[in-house]
């Protein structure tokens, strides 16, 4: 296990200051341009991916990021292939993983599980998504994509569309963006999936960030610099009927894209189902696959930083 001066965990995007985020983005940009410079910085180090629920992008992204730096991967990809089936606690699992690995990315369907791990972990724990709660590395990917495409993270009108109630990426993104100046949100959702009141009371209002809530996507699109689409997630609903009623509420297609400006980029945390027509993919403003690309470099930069690798140089 790598000895660290400061053991640090990342549970929420707000665990990082704006300055630290900016540094991470600079580092990620350098990693993208100069991959050889970082190709062996993790030689001999291991990442444990402890994924208690299925994930394709996030897990592959973490694993690729570690492989890019010359490290190795251990872990499991679902609760059924872990000792959780035998009743092992999250705390014990991380104690065990900490004996093998140097850093851990944890996804868990229960909210707060990575924090339980962080409380006892001997190695840095990165929250890779905990239920409907937080997903900090997705936020890092989102910010990096916006900054790269728009050249700034301030003075932006950001439309967020879809499931704003259960969407963890949405809450994390809003919390991170309100720290920049000149941000304005247009929150687009059906009544039932509106942003929770605590996000308004504790994040938007104290920051003085202007926002409006609308139902029609068409009304919002002409005003936007960024359109952040989300999927209505089946796994967040207790009731199948509610899910069926909500899932096709918004579909972004070529017609709606015509209403947007030439630099209104479309982001989506993926996987998408029906909410973005595949015909939109060829539009140069479709940035959701670029988001995946930048996400990997942000995870690489984050692990590099938590492992204090830059401090060796």
């Amino acid at each position: 296990m790598r000895k660290l001066k400061h053991l640090r965990h990342i549970m929420s995007p707000l665990d990082l200051t704006v300055e630290e985020m900016d540094k991470l983005m600079d580092l990620a940009a350098d990693m993208e341009v100069n991959p050889k410079k970082y190709a062996h910085v993790c030689d001999g180090l291991k990442l444990a991916t402890l994924f208690y629920e299925p994930s394709t992008r996030t897990r592959m992204s973490f694993e690729s990021a570690m492989l890019n730096m010359g490290g190795s991967i251990i872990g499991f990809h679902s609760a059924s292939s872990s000792s959780a089936t035998k009743g092992e606690s999250v705390a014990d699992t991380i104690r065990v993983a900490g004996c093998f690995a140097d850093i851990c990315a944890m996804r868990h369907p229960k909210e707060g599980a990575p924090m339980v791990a962080a409380e006892v972990s001997p190695i840095p724990v990165i929250n890779a998504g905990d239920g409907g709660h937080q997903h900090p590395t997705q936020t890092l990917a989102d910010l990096m994509t916006i900054r790269t495409l728009k050249g700034r993270l301030n003075n932006l009108t950001v439309g967020i569309c879809g499931d704003l109630k259960f969407g963890r990426t949405v809450h994390s993104l809003i919390s991170a963006l309100v720290r920049y100046t000149g941000i304005r949100f247009i929150l687009i959702s059906p009544e039932e999936l509106r942003i929770p009141s605590y996000v308004k009371e504790e994040v938007l209002n104290p920051a003085g960030t202007p926002y409006e809530e609308v139902i029609r996507l068409e009304d919002a699109i002409p005003k936007l610099d960024i359109l952040y689409m989300t999927r209505v997630q089946k796994e967040r609903f207790f009731n199948e009927d509610d899910y069926v009623r909500m899932k096709d509420f918004y579909i972004l297609d070529e017609e709606k894209m015509k209403l947007g400006g030439p630099e209104m980029y479309v982001l989506h945390p993926l996987p998408r189902v029906n909410e973005i027509s595949v015909n939109v993919d060829k539009d140069p403003r479709a940035a959701y696959f670029k988001q995946v690309h930048y996400g990997m470099y942000m995870r690489e930069a984050l692990m590099y930083t938590l492992l204090e690798l830059g401090e060796d140089q």
Binding site: S89, V90, A91, G112
Partner: peptide, 21 residues
């Protein structure tokens, strides 16, 4: 009372509430 919270399943975990406001 959040059924999605880790405190609903993790054995031996204290129920901790923090004054946020």
């Amino acid at each position: 009372r959040n059924p999605r919270c880790i405190t609903s399943i993790e054995q031996g975990l204290d129920q901790v509430f923090v004054l946020t406001d």
